[in-house]
């Protein structure tokens, strides 16, 4: 894990989606939304390898985004073989936020999405 990323970001679409979700009041800030996107992607069995980020834009320092390490724990829980959880986080967040925006735009509500994820 020594070569994991210390600064992570999003592709343009995912960034736009994150901003919109924050603007809609779903998330209190972009950091929570970013981490939720990772958790959401993991819950749906998404793997980083299948995600391609277009126009990556750095947004967070890892130390600031995940001071308690929960993001890293969550990723390694779902991806025990991953030795670069923050690299994976960037991919997962990108996919998760874009998908979440899509579904919300399709008039699904977040509570239902969350319930479906945990069933």
């Amino acid at each position: 894990m020594s070569d994991d990323k210390v600064q992570i970001g999003l592709g343009q679409d995912a960034d736009n989606a994150l901003k919109a979700l924050v603007d809609q009041g779903i998330f209190p800030n972009e950091g929570v939304g970013y981490k939720f996107g990772v958790a959401y992607a993991l819950s749906l069995g998404t793997t980083p390898e299948e995600v391609e980020i277009i126009g990556n834009k750095t947004k967070f320092a890892v130390a600031g985004l995940d001071p308690d390490g929960r993001l890293s724990i969550l990723i390694t829980t779902f991806l025990p073989d991953s030795d670069r959880p923050y690299w994976a986080a960037e991919k997962l967040a990108d996919w998760g936020l874009r998908d979440l925006a899509r579904r919300l735009a399709a008039h699904e509500d977040l509570a239902e999405i969350m319930e479906q994820a945990v069933l």
Partner: peptide, 19 residues
């Protein structure tokens, strides 16, 4: 604000199934 607070503290809850 309360909903935002829930997500602030439990953003990872959506991954409950896997966890």
């Amino acid at each position: 604000i309360a909903l935002q607070g829930l997500l602030t503290d439990g953003w990872f809850s959506v991954a409950l199934k896997g966890v």
